[in-house]
Nucleic acid binder design. Structure first.
Lengths: 204, 204
DNA sequence: CGCTTTCTTGACCGCGTCGTCCACAACGGG
DNA sequence: CCCGTTGTGGACGACGCGGTCAAGAAAGCG
């Protein structure tokens, strides 16, 4: 009994998802209609529903993918090749990269993790849970890097790495929020610099 | 020529605005309909339009009032009775109060300043500008308090108060964002404590 | 060719949305 | 009482919304 071949899809799923992400990112969940998405992707609404299951499913998919990409990108910046010697340089580069990306976001769009959470966390448990998972993962990445900084003698080994990681994470998330609220380049860059400068150094 | 008396309003404006704020805060701008607001306030739609001018005007009004209240509340906590001696205690209390309020926000609603900005800053200039003004005001309040801490010898007088204020502001905004994303009490409380602990102290 | 399977499209449905409109209401003044 | 002014409410209009549906399409197989 051989398989019967059905009609193949005409669209590239990843490409469509990228377009959908863009639309939800710009307009928010409630502010973006399925007609918007159909027009942006060039797909008929029936195809969208058939392939992705509906507006909420589509958003969850896009939100999940985005959270994955943020965590993956952060992991790439913080983990490097797993040596302690460059851990501080990687942390510093990451913090400055977040500030620089926020400065470059002249549309004040911010990140989809924050926007989706702000809009939906109160009423959509899937979004709330996914955001929480992302935050925990980011925290863990920062904690590992800070522990490596401590082992390498770049930061005070007596400080709790989880607590320092939480502080840095709040600064990064704060930079994102301030960027959306129109903070200028100087403020954002200063925050990055100051945050790194106040991390406790080893006693001589 | 005496004034002709028109029909008086049947509602209390501040009470209606409080209810409207609550609805927009919970549902966001796009996710809250004028029917929702009419039902919540008990006013007919014609009355709402007549009194407030339309959905966008209403949101702007509520957003503006909210930003004012956030800045006023922060001023109350940070300014006290204008003495340097208690400036650090006021700063510490403020940071911990933000963390505690975020912990208490079990609905993960966050603050309307952040939510409105996240949803609308990219496309609604009034909201973007108002958010920016609020952020600048918060920064100035923190800067003044930190300068008082420095004069009183509680913080290193050589550090730039504006930069420290920006750092603290990003932490506070980060606490808000992490709270919406489900960060737990321990993390939020640790952030508050660590942020204060890493502010530079005077050299002995 | 017909068959089966899945895909595509856009018209359509039932309902929702914002804003308008107008009949009536509430007030003080003459 | 009438007048003029503003307030009230909900029906209404024009359009938007998420999701459905059915006719036709694209594929491999026999």
């Amino acid at each position: 009994m051989l398989t019967v071949m059905a009609r193949p899809r005409k669209f590239d799923e990843q490409q469509v998802l990228a377009t959908v992400r863009e639309r939800f990112w710009a307009g928010g969940y409630a502010g973006t209609s399925m007609d918007d998405i159909a027009a942006a992707t060039g797909l008929g609404k029936g195809s969208l529903y058939g392939a992705f299951g509906g507006k909420q499913h589509l958003f969850h998919r896009v939100f999940d993918d985005y959270c994955n990409s943020v965590v993956d990108a952060t992991a790439q910046q913080l983990r490097g090749d797993d040596d302690d010697e460059n851990a501080y340089a990687r942390l510093s580069a990451h913090v400055h990269a977040v500030a620089a990306a926020t400065v470059a976001d002249t549309a004040q769009r911010g990140c989809l993790l924050a926007k989706g959470t702000a809009e939906l966390a109160e009423h959509d448990k899937t979004v709330a849970d996914r955001a929480h998972t992302a935050i925990e993962a980011l925290h863990a990445l920062l904690k590992d890097d800070i522990a490596a900084c401590q082992r390498n003698g770049d930061l005070d080994a007596n400080a709790d790495p989880g607590r320092l990681a939480a502080l840095v994470l709040s600064v990064l998330r704060g930079i994102e929020a301030l960027g959306k609220a129109g903070a200028d380049e100087e403020m954002l860059t200063d925050i990055a610099r100051t945050a790194l400068a106040v991390l406790p150094r080893p006693a001589n």
